[in-house]
Nucleic acid binder design. Sequence first.
RNA 1: GACCCUAUCAUCUAACGGUUAGGAUACGGCCCUCUCAAGGCCGGUAUACGAGUUCAAAUCUCGUUAGGGUCGCCA
Length: 586
Amino acid sequence: MITVSRFISNSFFDMFIVSKSPLKIKQKCDILFAKFKKGKKMTPEILDLLFPNKLPTVAEIESKYPPRQLPEGAVVSRLAPSPTGYLHIGNFYQGFMAERLAHQHNGVFFLRVEDTDQARKVDGAVEVVLNALAHYGIHPDEGRTLKGEVGAYAPYTQSERKEIYQAYAKELVAKGAAYPCFCTSEEIDMVRKIQSKQGLRTGYYGHYAKCRNLTDDEILTNLKAGKPFCIRLKSTGDYSKRIVVDDLLKGKVSLPEYDVDVPIIKATDGLPTYHFAHLIDDHLMQTTHVVRGEEWLSSLPLHIQLFNLMGWQPPKYAHHALLQKLGEDGKRRKISKRLDPEANIAYFAEHGYPQDAVLEYLLNLMNASFEDWRKQNPTTPVLDFPMDIHKISNTAGALFDMIKLNSIAREVVARMTAEEVYDKVLTWAKEYKPEYATLLENNREKCIAILNIERGIGAKSRKDLFKWEDAKHEMEFFFEAPAYDESLLAPMTHEDIQKVASEFAAIYEPADDNQAWFAKVKQVAEQNGFAIDMKAYKVDPSGYKGSVADVAKILRVAITGRTQSPDLCSIMKILGKEEVVERLKI
RNA sequence: GACCCUAUCAUCUAACGGUUAGGAUACGGCCCUCUCAAGGCCGGUAUACGAGUUCAAAUCUCGUUAGGGUCGCCA
């Protein structure tokens, strides 16, 4: 069991320590806390001016978030998207990884909405995310779900948690671990420019942290002047010292301590920044594993510092490499929302990629052993694959490979029955091509017969249809006689073509099996001076008008309007005698 | 500029310090064949570079180079 021990003490920091050995942690906290003894503690008057609203106490908040009752080793993880109306393939990849980790380890996967940037917020964006996940059969156990908000650690939307963050921030300010900063963004920009010019690290640290040691009077003056302020962390980090963190994917990572006094509460709206929200939420919600992109690695020392400051056990971190794409300049770059349509997970649904193909492709990027597993378990559901977080390759980000995805999609579709394919195509069409859905619905049996052409079991199946948007093109000549284009048959003469077509039409019998059908093709070939023995023809083509392949080509072009198609005999059977004869009238 | 991550075929990757460096995709060839898509068989292509440690290095260490990331009151 994960236990949260709470023991009575005067120290705020002692009140909610996640650990099996509270004493040890308590000592650690005391040491950390001692750093603030010298720091400035706010007077209650100033504190009330900084946080004028009535806030719950941290003890009250803590008491509302009881320990999770989960088996030993259970993983609690989450997807925490910003509601921008768009789910990036990278976020989906990350969420899927977190979901697998949690669900394969008796745990909980929850969805938390990180809407602290009100400017980027878009209505209905949470549904976009949830629907995208649901499309792939991924359902959060907790947090924002399609059934509403679920779980004991609510609210799961950060903008609704404002006073929680403020309560903790207030405590930090009271203890001298955080302070109000009245610098304007212009001032901060100015400092950054100067630092940049001098070749220094940019940021609010050291003597650049102007507001770090304001006197009570100065603070009061600023407050009375109505100056907006953010709350900054009073960093305890020393940039010349290093911290080593054990990352689940990266291994031991050595980084400089974080000495920048980052804002934890924004001046603009009183909402927290990512760092602070991560700290508070993942503590209260008892996240055990944070899976996220490598772009967060550099702020990891800050996050560790924050957890240490509170005396809380930090979660385990897994920073994965970012998905990349080959740019037009031949260089790798992040998959970009602006440049790459496939950066949006919705792209794959819109184009009718089978869900399993996308999941299999992503699992394959996580664990290369996926392909071996699939080979040995061809019919096992994809989510039964035991994804191993420790086997995720610790390399540079993979290039997103559409060709490989297509290849996986072919295999996925080849494993389906014609009925399954029909259902999937229909479901897709209802959403993205309604008029086509009507055609499909009115011709169910015929469509299934079409999809059954050369559909063997697994490996031997046709693999030309692998995404549903292509189904219309693959099947359309069954529903509409194609325009006849004799140029496809050059250099055969119209006379020969017409003779072949009409002679075949005269003897065509839909009941014929493939062999009987082909015998008739050969019969017509022979009658018209086409070679029926391909080998003999290849040795000496000069004695013939063409070969039996050319005869088949005539029939194919007349029937399908194309020079390439699936098995002609099967196609004719589905069309029926009348239609075949009609199409052979050239 | 500072800091961090990464470096094996074209791509995704596998390889207790000892392998003819393996697989998949892509590509090429052959077979099959009424075309195509498949399928079968075969093939070429890789340890970024330079030092060091070691009997032995893709694997450990250092440097160089290259790519990616971060340096926001965005997440």
